[in-house]
Design a protein around this nucleic acid. Structure first.
Lengths: 309, 309
DNA sequence: ATAATAGTGTCTTTCAGACAGTATAGT
DNA sequence: ACTATACTGTCTGAAAGACACTATTAT
């Protein structure tokens, strides 16, 4: 089969070798492809009362654009994919450039390919999501001093909901609000979007398109990408051990619970959380003592934990 | 804000208008971008004994490549994305060209961007998944008589499993086998792949990379894409009403159950299935009478059904 | 009656939610 | 003793699994 492959001829009578020699790869106009990496981390909230345990906050890294278009606005770190670089490698490179960490959790999210996203030219962007542990973040070496800031995320899902009848069925539109606040409180990004769920006759789908964006101070359609990532993060949290990537190797159950609560945007009942999470955990010898209360056992992720079987 | 946008200057002192005029969009070498659409349907199994209800089978549409590379082998229908065409539109166009249906379920799956997937040039492929109802398939008009065939899918998940220790943790590799058989039984495609799950220290991830493909008669890395789509289809089946897209508007519960069983690759207990599915259904006045047994109520999808709240 | 599928009732087990209660550190 | 957090036990009710059972058609 693979031996006589060289002898197969196409309609023009070319062998594969001849075909490739004659192939004009520039025949069609090509879009540009970028990779954008959403970098999330979870940190302790800064708190006045040092007798309380700090809550956690979810944060995302954004860079300030230094050139047109959207000059001066904030954007998800990203860049063009090298012609000899895989998408995964491009995402890793971007992550390394911005945070100086490698070997962290990295997952492809979605590819955005609307036609007029970028005024320069046709750009298709592949979005990746990275989850990093705060403690691994090494301040990156000098560089061209691009402005980079961590933004605290406030994600308000389903602020309101409206149902509209259409000919064949209906649409549900849900309002989503996103607030991003930089650490120094100098920069504030507000996003307001509508998630449209269509249910029409034979076209049954609860997939959603995000529509009607209103936002300030953030470049391109990046608020849409952030919203999509947050939804995915919440979903994956429920059925994968993805959250462990946001903590160091060792942690207390309460710390873990606070990570879940922060991302899910709701509080959980401690006994139930402990019950559900405990099969995923491995005890260590260590204890964590803090303030004036009972020390907590320190756990690590149970690498042998199994979803099923 | 948007008014004084015209006055913002970049490092070279250009306004946005000047910047765009001077921008050389061909500065970097660009990859080519294709959209590949996996088209699935479910049909009745052809059965000898006409006193039995037919089971269902899951099928995928493949096209025979008429040119290099992989000439004569089978491939997922796809093509280059037009420079003024969104990714979704390209997927819809591909679907329309191959099956002559529009407004069916269509979902973006994954973007494949390894460097040497295509010997012609660097190609990045965005995979979409379409679910169509067999009855909507209109034979498409003439065209250039490209060879197109439906293949019955046999998907064998987790044929075997092997656990290997690494420095920091372990890997689990699972064997997957895929068999694709054309209706006329002339073409047979066998795929054998390994799914690798890594669990290593701080890098906790149950996402999997599919590796070490062995296959015949199918072009590019398309067996990998099919495998990925089947996993996704199975997952989505459990928590979305995606399956209804594979049936017409009206159906019996048994038909629906057979669709679930076919895709999940296992049989389900009828009373439990009926109980779980019934909130998603709406009764109709119709009954379906067949052979020598009790007629079945005909249902349609309950468009008001709600996942949550 | 028989074959074949349609459809129901109910027992059991498992798991999520709610909440009361106990344990242990520092001050 | 008091505060703040760590951790446990158990009741309840919902949902999933298993299976025995009844119903209705054509032959």
């Amino acid at each position: 089969m693979s031996l006589d492959k060289r002898c197969l001829l196409n309609a023009k009578g070319e062998t594969e070798e001849e075909f490739l020699r004659n192939y004009d790869s520039e025949r069609y106009k090509k879009p540009s492809v970028t990779v954008d990496t959403l970098i999330f981390t979870v940190t302790d909230e800064v708190i006045e009362n040092n007798r309380k345990l700090p809550d956690k906050e979810l944060r995302i890294l954004l860079v300030k654009r230094k050139d047109h278009p959207y000059i001066g606005q904030w954007a998800i770190p990203g860049g063009f994919v090298g012609i000899n670089e895989s998408l995964d490698d491009a995402a890793k490179r971007e992550l390394m450039e911005e945070t100086n960490v490698d070997s962290v959790y990295l997952e492809q999210l979605y590819t955005i390919g609307e036609v007029n996203r970028d005024p320069r030219m046709r750009v298709i962007s592949v979005a990746y999501m990275a989850l990093v542990d705060e403690k691994n973040l090494k301040p990156k070496a000098g560089d061209d001093a691009a402005e980079v800031k961590w933004f605290k995320i406030k994600f308000m899902d389903k602020v309101s909901e409206e149902k509209v009848k259409t000919e064949k069925g209906f649409k549900v539109s849900r309002d989503i609000k996103i607030e991003l606040i930089s650490d120094d409180r100098e920069d504030l990004i507000l996003g307001s979007l509508k998630q449209i769920e269509k249910r029409e006759g034979s076209m049954i789908s609860i997939d959603t398109e995000i529509d009607k964006i209103e936002t300030n101070n953030i470049a391109f359609d990046h608020i849409k990408v952030i919203s999509y990532a947050l939804e995915r993060l919440r979903n994956k949290l429920e059925y994968t051990p993805i959250a462990f990537n946001l903590l160091g190797e060792c942690f207390t159950i309460t710390e873990l619970q606070k990570v879940y609560e922060t991302i899910l945007g709701k509080s959980l009942l401690t006994p139930n959380f402990r019950r559900k999470i405990s099969p995923m955990l491995q005890e260590t010898e260590m204890m964590k003592t803090e303030f004036q209360h009972r020390p907590a056992k320190v756990y690590r992720y149970n690498i042998e934990w199994n979803n099923e079987f």
